[in-house]
Amino acid sequence: MRRSGRSKFYIWLLLPAFFFYTVFWMLPAVVAFLSSFTQWNGVSLASIRWVGLANYAELFNDRWFWNALRNNLVFVAVVVSSIVILGMTYALILNSKPRGHSVFSTIFFIPIVLSSVVIGLLFTQMLSPTVGLVGPALSAIGMPEAANHQWLGSRDTALPMIMVVYIWRELGFAILLLIAGLQTIPKDYLEAARIDGATPWDITRYVTLPLMRPILTVVIVLATTNAFLLFDLVIVMTNGGPFHASEVLSVFMYSEAFLKGNPGYGTAIAMLLFVIILCVSGLQLALSGRGQKAN
């Protein structure tokens, strides 16, 4: 009697989350998935035509798709590795409790609270050669040539600048998670290693990092997923420009679906993006699982 009561109880626990998630997230996603096999003008339902895989086939011949994919991969690679390396460095420094560490970690927190829109607007202003801060700063330190450089308006620097701002925004959260991870490492492990005469570097390399593997995996998977979905910073800072130079997949999707009036094609892009993220994070989880066993 009680067993059956218990066996049903989880349904009540799961039901509300399942309901809202299914109706307001997955149902629209399924509709979107279906529309990736159609072509329509977004106006009348009568104009919807089932085109099968045509949208996907077209993607492979679209040079701007490959451009956006390349930009996205470069972005994810640079940004995730920077966040992990810098985040780990800062977490280790802060965790060793230097004087003033709590002031520093308070400051590092600030970007977490700001919205991307605010961050985007702020950096766009600062980087502008006409009204910004960077140009005059460069000419003040004797680089007047660079003062007129359009950081967000030239092919070579637009995406790198977005990367810098993105890292700036995300680093605080990674540091936070990593410090949390460091603090769960039992003190006696470290103490024992030190008594055995291990240098701080050895302790980090052979004790701390292996024990940090689970939290590092969380940080990497979260950072990768978020970086693949990068959208608002690009829209606010460059709109994907100049001429596709900073266009990533979600921006490309947005422009196809909403600006060029082809929602079916746009959804096909989104579905590919979904598959890519699924594969990459699956791979990361698998690798970390194997690594853990090897240890």
Partner: peptide, 9 residues
């Protein structure tokens, strides 16, 4: 759901 770009829905 974490991997679906919100713009698409």
């Amino acid at each position: 759901g974490m991997m679906i770009p919100p713009q698409v829905i």
